[in-house]
């Protein structure tokens, strides 16, 4: 289920998440983890062993889990509410809206195994609607880190951010894209590769595929810019506008339905302020078939080769 990449260089971002969370919890006794029986899948065994009182497992009860998180925040705690993303965001969406977003509570929502990480388990276990659902809510930044370094940086950022947020993490192995000293900035895109012919915008597990696509394009004489856009809300409108101006075409790639996610968010900026041709790659509004996560990404046109091909097709639409 890992990326099309040398296995030895792939890392599960959950490991960076829990290592960072444990370090933060060591320094701040108010940090707690809340989960729904997902101690293992959220990789919270180490946290539980180090801070047994601060691992709050409410059982298989996601609505309750998010409400409990909001109550803990009211009582001065800094809760990281961790669960498989489809159940966290789908089952408890109204709690996220009322108890976290509308009530402006300091709850860190951590969607584990998001996207199609549970590829073989079927569409009930896919979380390819969560950008759209959470992005529609005020007060909850939506963040999808691309590698273990950005994951750790985002978890650290969340601890000092006063307010709610949604961290969308995967369990798929991904290679490092960022230097170890990378600092996460909310609402800021990262230039992974510069180029002038076309821009590829991606996040999460798609970011390194976008970089690989740009490498393929370079071998064909196409200069592609690659932006990592972990922050889906708020968006870095300036980076999108610069990309539109400099490259004249934007391709988005996401492990999400193309309705309401990263591509839609980018398109909103593009139509409002810098109209250029766009192509949105993602899951085309269907429930995905059975398959390993990386296979599904390939099937939906997001292999590095297919991304590169979509980029060249898109470039033909440039004025």
């Amino acid at each position: 289920m890992n990326a099309p990449f040398d296995a030895a260089q792939l890392h599960d971002c959950r490991d960076a998440f829990v290592a960072t969370l444990e370090a933060l919890a060591e320094a701040n006794k108010h940090i707690v983890a809340v989960c729904n029986d997902s101690v293992g899948s959220s990789k919270l065994v180490g946290f539980r062993d180090r801070f047994p009182d601060r691992l709050i497992n409410v059982g298989i009860a996601e609505q309750n889990m998010v409400g409990v998180g909001a109550g803990l925040a009211n009582g001065g705690k800094v809760p990281y509410v961790c669960a498989a993303s489809p159940f966290l965001t789908g089952r408890a969406l109204e709690q996220i809206k009322a108890d976290v977003a509308y009530s402006r509570t300091n709850v860190k929502l951590v969607g584990i195994s998001s996207g199609m990480a549970y590829g073989e388990l079927g569409a009930t276990h896919h979380s390819i609607e969560d950008f759209a659902w959470i992005r529609a809510l005020p007060n909850v930044p939506v963040i999808a880190p691309a590698d273990r370094v950005e994951t750790a940086a985002a978890v650290t950022w969340a601890a000092q951010h006063v307010g709610g947020c949604f961290l969308r993490l995967s369990r798929m192995g991904v290679p490092d894209l960022f230097p170890a000293d990378h600092v996460f900035e909310l609402g800021k895109a990262n230039l992974l590769r510069d180029g002038g012919d076309v821009t590829i915008i991606a996040n999460g597990v798609l970011a390194h595929r976008a970089v690989m696509a740009a490498t393929l394009l370079a071998s064909q004489g196409v200069s592609a810019r690659v932006l990592n856009m972990a922050s889906v809300r708020p968006m870095d409108a300036q980076a999108i506008q610069s990309a539109a101006r400099d490259t004249g075409a934007i391709l988005t790639c996401e492990e999400h339905t193309i309705f309401g996610g990263l591509g839609s968010a980018v398109a909103e900026v593009v139509v409002d302020s810098c109209p250029v041709p766009m192509t949105r790659l993602g899951v085309p509004g269907v429930f995905a078939h059975t398959g390993a996560a990386n296979q599904l990404l390939d099937d939906f046109g997001m292999s590095p080769e297919a991304i590169a091909s979509s980029a060249t097709t898109l470039m033909k639409r440039k004025a």
Binding site: I56, V68, G69, G71, L72, G75, D99
Partner: peptide, 16 residues
């Protein structure tokens, strides 16, 4: 919504 949030509050008081 209120009771789950109340459980979280009460748990916070217990922790402290």
């Amino acid at each position: 919504h209120g009771l789950p949030v109340g459980v979280g509050m009460a748990k916070a008081a217990k922790l402290d």
